[in-house]
Write a protein that binds this DNA or RNA. Structure first.
Length: 362
DNA sequence: CCTATTTGACCAGC
DNA sequence: GCTGGTCAAATAGG
């Protein structure tokens, strides 16, 4: 949630920048166009996230109030949702950070082949190299937006931690393909791999092919919980309410959209990276001993469980509604009026200054 | 020192 | 033989 606010602040900063440079850019409509498109993309992203978030919150609250839910039930719900997301039909999705109209590319996540692979991984520990193209390998391909700023070479964060083990020039592709495997491969023999390839015609889009499934989080000693499926990650940017009754928690509020603009705002006292988040979720979900509905609800609503300390993310309600209002003011106020933006700009000045001290954007 | 990344070489599938 | 996927030594960084 904090990065949503950070995104809003960033969008506001862009607006201010345009405002300040209007005299200079009066004869450069291309610059203004570029800037305004960026602003629109930023706030579209915010709106989508907030709408998705709001829907999740409602569903979880309804579920919690309508059933004598236990943490065990929550766990079952968690897995059910995961299965549902993992096996549902391909769905279109809007891409993070793409300017309006960019989704006309018809970017689509494609489940290439959801056949499960149990023969790879530890079983392939023979002296011979693993065989390829056997056809029974779990394989699915998704397309994700690259960050529009920062290091464009970095693939979008997906909640898992990966280790790069190879890169190769691919015939007919301008960009090399990068090969990643799960960092837990050694520890837990997790066979999950992914290939990341930037599209020739859309350099801002990564085609990510996932192969084999994570087993690391199922290990009794593994400290991780399954981060959300890729579909769920995509759904964070979906423009329509998700078909599933509820969504899984985001891997971390600092791991996904934070990379979108390369402007993660570190929580105070949070020294960990995004990879730490699922671990805390595991404590709440997977083992159940310390799990509480409150923590589960926090995780489900994307509010809690982030960061080793958990501080800062668990108080979603403290600032969520104002943000919704702010976004609502931005998008629902009449186009002829700019007062709402003025209010926003003026009201966030203090906050922006604070945020700016914490992290220099751009 | 440990871990991650880079990169040339190797190997299997087509 | 070509291409793509993986290995593993070298290198970099914390």
């Amino acid at each position: 949630m904090d990065e949503t606010i950070a995104t809003i602040l960033y969008g506001c900063k862009l607006g201010k920048e345009v405002e300040a440079n209007l005299p200079n850019w009066a004869n450069h409509p291309a610059i203004i166009l570029s800037k305004t498109e960026e602003i629109i993309a930023v706030f579209n992203n915010v709106r989508e996230r907030l709408m998705s978030h709001h829907h999740q919150q409602q569903v979880v609250q309804e579920w919690l109030s309508s059933s004598a839910a236990t943490s065990h039930q929550a766990l079952e719900l968690f897995h059910a949702a995961e299965n549902m997301l993992d096996h549902r039909a391909p769905a279109t999705f809007a891409v993070h950070g793409m300017p309006p109209g960019s989704d006309q590319m018809g970017l689509q996540q494609q489940v290439m082949d959801a056949s499960h692979d149990s023969s790879r991984g530890a079983a392939a520990s023979s002296t011979q190299r693993q065989r390829r193209r056997t056809g029974d390998t779990y394989r699915r391909t998704v397309r994700l937006a690259a960050p529009r700023m920062g290091n464009l070479e970095l693939p979008p964060e997906d909640g898992y931690t990966w280790r790069k083990y190879g890169q190769k020039e691919i015939l007919g592709s301008r960009f090399p393909r990068a090969y990643y495997r799960c960092t837990n491969q050694k520890l837990y023999h997790c066979p999950a791999k992914k290939q990341v390839q930037r599209l020739d015609d859309h350099p801002y889009v990564f085609e990510v092919t996932y192969r084999s499934q994570h087993t690391c989080y199922m290990s009794a000693i593994a400290p991780t919980v399954p981060p959300p499926s890729v579909e769920e990650i995509n759904h964070q940017a979906t423009t329509t309410p998700p078909p599933a009754p509820l969504l899984l928690p985001p891997p971390t509020s600092a791991s996904l959209s934070g990379h979108w603009l390369s402007m993660d705002i570190k929580q105070q006292g949070e020294a960990g990276t995004s990879t730490t988040t699922p671990f805390d979720m595991q404590r709440d979900f997977g083992h159940g001993t310390g799990g509480s509905l409150a923590s589960i609800c926090n995780v489900m609503t994307g509010g809690g469980g982030a960061g080793p300390s958990g501080g800062g993310y668990g108080r979603e309600d403290d600032h969520y509604q104002p943000v919704v209002d702010m976004a609502d003011a931005m998008f629902n106020s009449g186009s002829s009026s700019n007062t709402s933006m003025d209010i926003i700009f003026s009201s966030i000045d203090d906050k922006w200054d604070t945020a700016e001290k914490k992290e220099q954007f751009i």
